[in-house]
Design a protein around this nucleic acid. Sequence first.
DNA 1: AGCGATTCTTAAACTAGATTAAGGGTAGTT
DNA 2: AACTACCCTTAATCTAGTTTAAGAATCGCT
Lengths: 208, 208
Amino acid sequence: MNTAPDKKNNSVTESSLNSLFQYFNGLLPLKEKEREELRTRVKERKIRRKHYLLQHDDLCKHYTFIITGCFRMFSVDQKGTEHNLQFAAENDWITDMGSFYSGKPSQLYIEAIEPSHILQIEKGDLLFLYSHFSRVNRNFRVIIEIKFVELQNRLLQNISSTVEERYIYFLEHYPHLSHRLPSTQIASYLGVTPEFLSKVRKGMASKA
Amino acid sequence: MNTAPDKKNNSVTESSLNSLFQYFNGLLPLKEKEREELRTRVKERKIRRKHYLLQHDDLCKHYTFIITGCFRMFSVDQKGTEHNLQFAAENDWITDMGSFYSGKPSQLYIEAIEPSHILQIEKGDLLFLYSHFSRVNRNFRVIIEIKFVELQNRLLQNISSTVEERYIYFLEHYPHLSHRLPSTQIASYLGVTPEFLSKVRKGMASKA
DNA sequence: AGCGATTCTTAAACTAGATTAAGGGTAGTT
DNA sequence: AACTACCCTTAATCTAGTTTAAGAATCGCT
């Protein structure tokens, strides 16, 4: 698309890198040296809607940072039903951490819900950065800590709240997602059928 | 209890420290210098059965490593019902990561299910170790990665499996816990009532 | 040994959520 | 304009899991 020349010999644009650096500024900002190292190790890609970043039995070789667009990570059970484990949009990361660190084939799928623009870093490069730059290590520790706490809250909700409560929580905490996802995808994320979510929504509308 | 003299001026016994060092040997083993630093920063405690390590509105100031014993972390909903988020026994860690890193009051409780023997490290000490010893940082990143993947699998089960399937999974994956916990505690962990778990168990027994 | 507290089970009535089936709405494609 | 694919809703029936209540079993403590 953009034909403007970049400083470096790989194809990563400055504006994409800036999104990533801006993101780290919200955690533990990177030093110039660390930025340079990241710059040479990150690959830029565009993914079409409904295309897959990861499929069952693939090895998950990358951490993916989303510049624009939206993804879902899901699993498929024996009956063929899909279950959404996670959504991720702008300024978020998505990866199958289990496969990424164990090196074993993934059980999951990562699909683009919208045309998306991403940066990816490979496992070898990330491990290199971990061992040479403690600030990178600490940033990724913090990223996982945040995701862990979110996941724990979600689990708590799943064992203690009704579908309506979970749905309201989702709408309040992910407003940037709730208006761009079909409600059938949200139902799968909440762990219910689309039919039942529809019933819940009807109930909420009649109350208000 | 033990009156044998220790090398250092705090009260941490060598055998407790060895449990911790052994644990790290299974991840990324610590260097002597790092062990020394940990030694001076870790506190040893014994906790009686039914006593609390953390209660609602407390700040969670420690990462706790369990040498012997068993804990549960739970939340209490509006109706007063408890919901077990996590169990932890020997060679495992327990903390409310949300409160620990945010510095905000915890919404959770951590209770000893058995008389327990633990090591604790304070936030300030851990942050000091993170910034001076990348190996410590990496170890704790790996600890969280492992816990994240476990949690994600559990969530997936909660949105996609029956109670019987979840119960069987629990028995298979936590045999060291399943035989020492009352099944009412397991029911709370699985997100069902004790009465229903009893029914499920009866069904399983009649099948086999 | 005996007492209180906790734990486990059973069963009947109830409710949240699944399933099945059908119809209508909308968007994208040719 | 018509076709396909997807998405949303409704409603009837069914089932997994809850609630309430009560009794039996087990554990820990003095």
